[in-house]
């Protein structure tokens, strides 16, 4: 049961959020073609390790929070607003 620090609401329980997946994928430019959009929808790195991802604070401010979480230990390294640049720790 994670605790996630929403940049707007403070530290909240995982139950208030909805998980929305990898936050590093970019929507391709409109003329990029089917393969690029296919990757955007379906292809994911699914790493064993640090993951930059979206958590949607549906039971709170309803903002998407960017979270850096380790997929094995569930340690949360950092959280931020949707437009923040967050990176996984080097280790």
């Amino acid at each position: 049961m994670h605790q996630i620090k929403c940049p707007w609401c403070g530290i909240r329980d995982e139950a208030e959020f909805s998980y929305r997946g990898d936050a590093t994928v970019q929507r391709p430019a409109p003329d990029s073609g089917i393969d690029a959009f296919n990757d955007f929808i379906y292809t994911r790195a699914n790493p064993r390790g640090w993951h930059v991802e979206w958590w949607h604070h549906v039971a709170g401010c309803r903002q998407h929070v960017k979270v850096v979480r380790h997929t094995m230990t569930h340690e949360i390294h950092a959280t931020g607003k949707a437009t923040d640049k967050l990176e996984a720790p080097s280790s």
Binding site: S18, R20, A23, R27, W54, H56, V58, R62, Q63, H64, A82, T83
Partner: peptide, 13 residues
């Protein structure tokens, strides 16, 4: 609503 929030906040902020 969630669909709209995802696009407005993360793709077209």
């Amino acid at each position: 609503l969630e669909h709209m929030e995802f696009y407005a906040q993360t793709i077209w902020p």
